[in-house]
Design a protein around this nucleic acid. Structure first.
Length: 278
DNA sequence: AAATAAGGCAACCGCGCTCTC
DNA sequence: GGAGAGCGCGGTTGCCTTATT
């Protein structure tokens, strides 16, 4: 009996050791560094917290400089991508509704692979997410629905057109298509959505207290209105205005790894702690 | 239980555009 | 007008998870 218990305990420990080893190997594989000592690969929760804390507090005044001030060993591009696709408030995650899928298919027919333009019409969805969803699900679904060649041909056509005229659709440019203008105005008006928002990230609870200099469209700013709580109106926060124009003498302080910003108090107040179980 | 295949998704890369000097 | 910096976008890659053998 005791022998059985011991052997069970042994195998349990062996399993745990194997899992630990595997996890260590996985981390070693995913944490790679490029020539310039900049980290690449998967983002760790700590990095997410740093980036979130920094952007939340100071805004994204310069993506290239940001990692240095935020205490991150990442390139600015990587930080921007992480913020835009994952950490930004109002990112809707989880399953797509039938309406959303239909919208994507319809827009893809008319716009081709202009994922950012398509994303502009789907509040809370990122271009990257839509692109992935298209390639994994919708493309097949559409192929099933119709025998016509799918609109990836449109992207080929677009590539060819690009060289000629390249009529880039900018959601806020004067040349904006009526369709997109309509979508933006509708996304700005606070009408209730029929889609399920329960799957939104906890980051949605974060009050973004600073505006991002590169969030050019009103559509992007719209989310800020919804996130005034719990620390007051973002437009009246004293540090907000300072940092938006960010004169060089007011550059935010470099965050050291044990910055008070990251000691949990601030982040917890934004609901970040729950997300990572801090 | 282990090996393999397939699907899903996060992240990287490179190109091109815009803005500033 | 040209050069350089910064940013956004779309294509692609590669890791991770799940399903199948």
């Amino acid at each position: 009996m005791r022998g059985k218990l011991n052997s069970a305990k042994d195998s349990e420990e062996k399993k745990r050791a194997r899992d630990t080893e595997r996890e260590r190997e996985r981390m070693a594989r995913t944490l790679c560094w490029d020539k310039s000592c900049l980290k690449k690969g998967k983002w760790t929760p700590e990095e997410d917290l740093k980036l979130m804390a920094y952007v939340t507090r100071y805004g994204c005044w310069n993506w290239r400089q940001l990692p240095k001030y935020a205490g991150l060993s990442r390139c600015g591009k990587s930080c921007r991508l992480r913020w835009m696709n994952y950490l930004r408030p109002n990112i809707k995650r989880g399953n797509y509704t039938k309406e959303e899928e239909d919208t994507i298919i319809r827009l893809h027919e008319s716009l081709g692979n202009r994922w950012s333009a398509i994303a502009a019409q789907l509040p809370g969805r990122t271009d990257n997410e839509i692109k992935n969803h298209w390639h994994t699900k919708l493309k097949k679904r559409k192929q099933k629905d119709t025998v016509k060649p799918d609109s990836s041909d449109l992207s080929q056509r677009r590539k060819r057109q690009k060289k000629d005229t390249k009529p880039k659709i900018d959601p806020i440019s004067p040349g904006t298509t009526p369709q997109i203008i309509e979508s933006i105005s509708s996304s700005l008006s606070p009408k209730p959505s029929t889609s399920d928002f329960s799957s939104s990230t906890t980051a949605n609870n974060i009050a973004v207290t600073s505006s991002c200099s590169d969030l050019k469209s009103d559509d992007e700013f719209a989310f800020l209105e919804a996130y005034e709580a719990p620390i007051g109106n973002i437009w009246t926060e004293p540090f907000l205005a300072d940092n938006y124009y960010m004169p060089s003498e007011f550059l935010p302080p470099l965050l050291d790894p044990v910055s008070p910003l990251l000691d949990g108090e601030l982040l917890c107040s934004y609901g970040v702690c729950e997300q990572y179980g801090v």
